[in-house]
């Protein structure tokens, strides 16, 4: 089957919204969303920990749903809305979850961090007051090799404890 008759390996033009901004580019058919974000948009906060969909480090929000960006073609994300770890802080203010994770010593080496932040952001958007069991369940598809997870779980729970604090406030 000659390539030219049925479809192109690339370049394919795509346009999508990333962290609230219109972005675009020409991608190869085989380029994953993760590689597009990292290599073509320079958004290296999204990390590749396994490239086969197990570790969760590359999790982004794709049309608001947590998604493994290593398992989505960039071409498939054409016309979609993507949020990455770089988009969590607004106007230089860390999100409530980011602050809680900082206060809770949630992370160590920081490599898995973006995936956990995105997954937990999605959880809290859907369920603002999860139980510990719900947090552990929601995060069970994200691997961390450093922490044993307890500090991460505590960080998520801290983000939903008590009334919303103002953005400027920070320990």
């Amino acid at each position: 089957m000659p390539e030219s008759e049925l479809g192109a390996r690339g370049p394919l033009p795509i346009r999508l919204e990333v962290n609230g901004e219109e972005r675009g580019g020409d991608v190869e058919a085989r380029t994953t969303l993760a590689d597009f974000l990292r290599d073509q948009l320079g958004l290296t906060g999204t990390h590749l920990g396994c490239e086969h969909g197990v570790c969760g480090a590359c999790t982004v929000l794709l049309d608001s749903l947590p998604t493994r960006s290593c398992l989505v073609l960039a071409a498939s994300a054409d016309g979609c809305r993507v949020e990455t770890v770089e988009g969590l802080a607004r106007d230089g203010q860390l999100s409530r979850l980011q602050r809680a994770m900082w206060d809770s010593h949630s992370f160590q080496c920081g490599f898995c961090t973006p995936g956990f932040l995105i997954q937990a952001t999605a959880l809290l958007a859907e369920n603002p007051t999860p139980t510990e069991a719900e947090v552990r369940h929601a995060l069970s598809g994200n691997l961390c090799r450093c922490t044993g997870y307890e500090s991460i779980v505590r960080g998520v729970l801290a983000a939903c404890a008590g009334p919303e604090r103002s953005g400027a406030e920070s320990k």
Partner: peptide
């Protein structure tokens, strides 16, 4: 004291720099 980590602000905002970055 369990003072907050100086490493974290970068790592929490996707500004860590690993070799692949």
């Amino acid at each position: 004291a369990s003072v907050r980590r100086v490493e974290d602000e970068r790592l929490l905002t996707g500004r860590g720099t690993f070799v692949a970055d």
